[in-house]
Simulated scan of single mutants.
Amino acid sequence: MHVDLSAPLLPDYRSSQVDPPDFDQFWSDTLTESRSRAGDVSVVAVDSPLTSIDVFDVTFSGFEGQPIRAWLRVPAGANAPLPAIVEFIGYGGGRGHALEDLLWASAGFVSFHMDTRGQGSGWSIGDTPDPAGAGPQSPGVMTRGIETKETYYYRRVFADAVRAIETVRGFEIVDASRVAVFGRSQGGGISLAVSGLVPDLAAVAPCVPFLCDFPRATVVTDAYPYKEIGSYLAVHRDKVESAHGVLAYFDGVNFAKRASAPALFSASMMDDVCPPSTIYGAYNVYGGDKEISLWQYNGHEGGGILDEERALAFFTAAFNRVESATA
């Protein structure tokens, strides 16, 4: 059944999320510090049975220069600058196996699949630790370091994601003007954050994005992972205001306001993990050209492979526009 506002009400919904006055300065300082600590990028060829795609094991510098793992997949024999798609991963997952996630490279693009620090083993393999210490937290990462914006977990993840974009743009095989980002669920939320922090992306496709509209999400659904925040605040009753003050710096709503790249969203009417109103909270204030697929009879799986098929067409059109504009 539908779990949230009816479809006709969604276009008019507005989130109650606040816009912290030092939001931009906070993120500028975070990224400046991380860039200042960046080291060399390691790119190691992977011996695989694939004949049409070359796979590389990459380690790059993320938040505060900490090492982040990723898979780089390139169409075999490619020798000209290509468009690139950077993909971020859903909650609990890692970058997975070298032979997984071959769609973007099979379509002729460079594919960069960033590991998510401190995750993996939930449903796919992760290889990147999160070395930062944290205070008491609910199981999972949603309340890790929630005491302050400086220590909150997603500060590190979002900085990693921006550094992933910058790393990809430094590869000779990549056309730096034609880089897009894709993600599903948590990966969609990370994509939205990047869209608000990197001003010149070619396109972004956040599918059923998580990490949007915390004020509503934490009370409208009893499903995890948002429930982690509710469980934490049910115990730490005196931290409701301070926790939401921190979360405002990491909400897709506030990143969406600052974004300008063409965007293709998706949402599902039966999604109890990321209720559609929370996604529309970000979509309705998104700063660039945008469109959304609303799946009537689906849950958190969204459009599944159709989301990816639509994103592929969307990215191809965006890359062609950029190429034509610079020709």
Rank of each mutant, 00 (worst) to 15 (best):
H2N: 14
V3L: 12
Y13V: 00
R14K: 12
R14S: 02
R14T: 01
S16W: 00
Q17M: 13
P21D: 14
P21L: 03
D29S: 15
T32N: 12
T32D: 14
S36N: 03
R37Q: 07
S42L: 05
S52K: 12
V55L: 04
V58I: 09
Q66R: 12
I68W: 05
A80H: 10
A80L: 11
I85T: 09
Y91F: 13
G92F: 00
G92A: 00
G96R: 00
H97D: 13
D101G: 14
D101E: 14
W104E: 01
W104I: 03
A105S: 13
F109L: 08
S111F: 13
F112E: 14
G120R: 00
G120Q: 00
S121K: 12
S124M: 04
S124W: 05
P131Q: 10
G133T: 11
A134I: 06
S138W: 05
P139G: 02
G140M: 10
G145P: 09
G145Y: 13
Y152C: 11
Y153H: 12
Y154S: 06
R156D: 08
A159C: 08
D160L: 12
I165G: 01
T167C: 13
T167R: 02
V168T: 11
A176C: 05
G188N: 07
G189Y: 09
G196E: 07
G196P: 07
L201V: 09
A203I: 11
V208A: 05
V208R: 02
L211Q: 04
C212V: 12
P215F: 04
P215W: 01
A217H: 11
V219E: 11
V220Y: 02
D222F: 10
Y226W: 13
E228M: 11
S231A: 12
A234L: 06
V235L: 03
H244T: 02
A248N: 10
F250H: 01
D251K: 07
N254P: 13
K257E: 07
S268G: 14
D271A: 08
V273Q: 04
C274Y: 01
P276H: 06
G281P: 07
A282W: 09
V285E: 04
G288R: 06
G304Y: 12
E309P: 00
R310A: 15
F314Y: 12
A317W: 04
V322S: 05
S324G: 02
S324Q: 07
